[in-house]
Design a protein around this nucleic acid. Structure first.
Length: 625
RNA sequence: GGGGACGUAGCUCAGUUUGGUUAGAGCGCUGCCCUGUCACGGCAGAGGUCGCGGGUUCGAGCCCCGUCGUCCCCGCCA
């Protein structure tokens, strides 16, 4: 069909905002045709823009030209509707729509653009095919749910910026092209044209720069910072992601917690949710014991120590390592599972962690009726609750004693807890419908979206938790030495410093994580600001002065020029938005995300580049055959 | 690198258990009809290399092997 020019037509209103109060006004609306209902001489168009939908009426008698065009428009055509707002007859009011009391009596319709038939319609909320959604992301993003997600993201980001600014933080940008450091995640490298054979790296975080900003006297820095890590993706991990990154001078751990609690409260308020502060705290060891993870989800029961339910004879018969934890995990209201249902769950358990599980209670009860009953009692299990016992496998090649140091959890213990914790999280996801523990979060998120004036109580739906007292070092059994569990500028807790050399196992790091509903939201630490302490740490890690200089030279220099005590944290903005959007993965809150195989299906990145480009960059590609 | 789920019409899915006529449904799409619909309705119609390759078989959407893609998890992510 022939298209119309916009001419000097100016939009006067937004579709979703029209109400009965506007009745009688002449309006010009522009947007996409959401649906068309053709009654012959009367055509209804649902016109959609970012604010919502309004009904346009094309009457063959009142507006023959517009009606004629209306016969030809199709969903997702872009049109301008000119006309008068009028109240609908009482029996024509649609109470399901915010604009349902009015409609636009069209006097003119301009067809601004047509469309190819998209593989799905933005008005269709049943679309689940992520491949198609990502390829046609521009259509997917038109969907009301996506529009809401990005409105939410905007509001949250704005609130955090505003709040941190009010708390005296200054937003300062740091380089995207920077220096590769071999620590941590894999870097994305950028070849230098000017310097043959040399590379920049994209920042995994602004870590070193923000510390230098403290040395530079900015006192309080923050940045909504894009970060890049070339690692495998997950539901909560993308190659590039956004951190709320901040650093402050002269803080105690408490100071950082206070700052974060304030801006998190503000961020949640921007999403319509009241988040109580301060957040509760738990030590790393306690979190591992109780939840088998350092990002606990407190909406479900934790792990229960059920060692006491078993006699040593029973453990021997069951082939369970008595030196390792024996815990029960309980998923409420799952009901009794058939053998096949249980077996379907077995791949969710990570056998490589040196742990095993018992999920057949009937069989257990035949041989050890008291133990079976005692386990369920200790775990507080009701009849319809599903209980699994997780314990150490004595056949594992690393013995329970091999990595055991007094006063802290051993690698084997951690792995048994982790196997239980992972299993718990996977089963919780699988049986979400049955246990219903996640429903409260969905409800709060849904209600908050409706944006009534008052904030909705989020205390039952969101469970923030500070994790503290992480071990400073981990023992690398293969290398036979202590390695840092965090980046090497993390300060030890002051009281533990005398033990740095004599008893590294006992040293705790002055760092902290923020977890919520099974997600790690952020991680930070108080940093080392003294050269002598930094040298001690390097020494206890077996890093020579030359090595340290090669890796972090400029930063170690900077540390010697009057570095104030400082510390900070970085929080995953995408994850915060994901929680508040009620989304199951990050792709729902990132406009142009990548697939699990790190591909942008819309832009079709990555791709090979021309020989000429490679040549300019002094690069030759040698693919492994 | 490893484990798991999925892949049938544009979309959502049934059909795969136990191989057997021309592979179905709803939505969407096309044409016609319709002045009060709002998931409009009515009539008619088009649309399928059953992800791809190979194998078994008289015969494969269904069985076997391989491969590709999407998703989830482990490893990895200081």
């Amino acid at each position: 069909m022939s298209l119309d020019f916009l001419g000097n037509l100016e939009r006067t209103h937004l579709c979703g905002t029209l109400r009965a109060a506007e009745a009688g006004k002449h309006v010009v609306l522009m947007g996409w045709v959401n649906r068309r209902r053709d009654h012959g001489n009367l055509i209804f168009l649902d016109l959609r823009d970012r604010t919502g939908i309004a009904q346009v009426v094309l009457d063959a008698e009142l507006c023959p030209e517009g009606h004629r065009k209306g016969e030809q428009v199709r969903p997702e055509y872009v049109v301008a509707a000119v006309g008068k707002v009028r109240l609908r007859d009482k029996d024509a009011i649609n109470p399901k729509m915010p604009t349902g009391e009015i409609e636009i009596e069209a006097t003119d319709l301009r067809v601004l653009n047509d469309t190819r038939l998209a593989p799905f319609s933005p008005s269709d909320d049943a679309i689940q095919n992520e491949e198609v959604r990502l390829k046609y992301r521009y259509v997917d993003l038109r969907r009301a749910e996506m529009q809401q997600n990005f409105r939410l993201r905007h509001d949250i980001t704005l609130a955090i910026r505003d709040n941190l600014s009010q708390q005296g933080f200054l937003e300062i940008e740091t380089p995207i092209l920077t220096k590769s450091t071999p620590e941590g995640a894999r870097d994305f490298l950028v070849p230098s044209r000017v310097h043959p054979g040399e590379f920049y790296a994209l920042p995994q975080s602004p870590q070193i720069f923000k510390q230098i900003l403290m040395i530079s006297g900015f006192d309080r820095y923050f940045q909504i910072a894009r970060c890049f890590r070339d690692e495998d993706l997950r539901a909560d991990r993308q190659l590039e992601f956004t951190q709320v990154d901040l650093e402050m001078s002269f803080p105690r751990q408490e100071t950082v917690f206070g700052v974060v609690e304030q801006f998190m409260k503000a961020a949640f308020a921007a999403a319509g949710v009241e988040l109580p502060v301060p957040f509760p705290r738990i030590s790393y060891d306690e979190s591992m014991r109780q939840f088998g993870t350092d990002k606990p989800d407190l909406r479900l029961p934790g792990l229960t120590d059920v060692h006491s339910a078993f006699t040593s004879e029973a453990l021997a018969t069951l082939q369970v390592d008595p030196a390792l934890p024996i815990v029960a995990l309980r998923i409420p209201k799952v009901g009794e599972l058939s053998r096949k249902e249980r077996e379907d769950n077995h791949p969710l358990f990570d056998l490589k962690k040196g742990a095993k599980f018992i999920d057949d209670f009937k069989r257990l009860a035949k041989s050890f009726p008291e133990a079976a009953a005692k386990v369920r009692e200790l775990a507080g299990a009701a009849d319809e609750d599903f209980v699994i016992i997780v314990a150490g496998d004595p056949a594992h090649h690393i013995k329970a004693s091999d990595t055991k140091f007094p006063g802290r959890l051993s690698e084997r213990e951690i792995n048994v807890y982790a196997a239980a914790g992972n299993f718990r999280a996977e089963l919780a996801k699988k049986y979400a419908e049955r246990h219903g523990a996640f429903r409260i979060t969905d409800e709060v998120v849904q209600n908050a979206r409706a944006r009534s004036a008052a904030l909705i109580d989020g205390s039952q739906a969101f469970h923030p938790m500070w994790l503290t007292d992480f071990p400073m070092f981990e023992y690398d059994l293969a290398a036979g030495k202590w390695v840092p569990a965090h980046h090497p500028f993390t300060a030890p807790i002051e009281a533990d410093m005398p033990n740095l050399v004599s008893d590294p196992a006992s040293v705790r790091a002055n760092c902290y994580d923020l977890a919520m509903n099974g997600l790690e939201l952020g991680s930070g630490s108080i940093r080392i600001h003294r050269k002598d302490v930094q040298q001690q740490i390097f020494a206890s890690l077996g890093i020579t002065e030359q090595e340290a200089k090669a890796r972090f030279g400029f930063f170690l220099d900077a540390l010697e020029y009057g570095t104030p005590p400082h510390g900070g944290i970085a929080l995953g903005l995408d994850r915060i938005v994901m929680l508040l959007a009620g989304a199951a993965n990050l792709r729902e809150v990132i406009a142009f995300p990548k697939t699990a195989k790190a591909i942008d299906l819309m832009a079709e990145a990555p791709t090979p580049v021309s020989e000429q480009q490679l040549k300019e960059l002094h690069i030759r590609v040698a693919l492994k055959s």
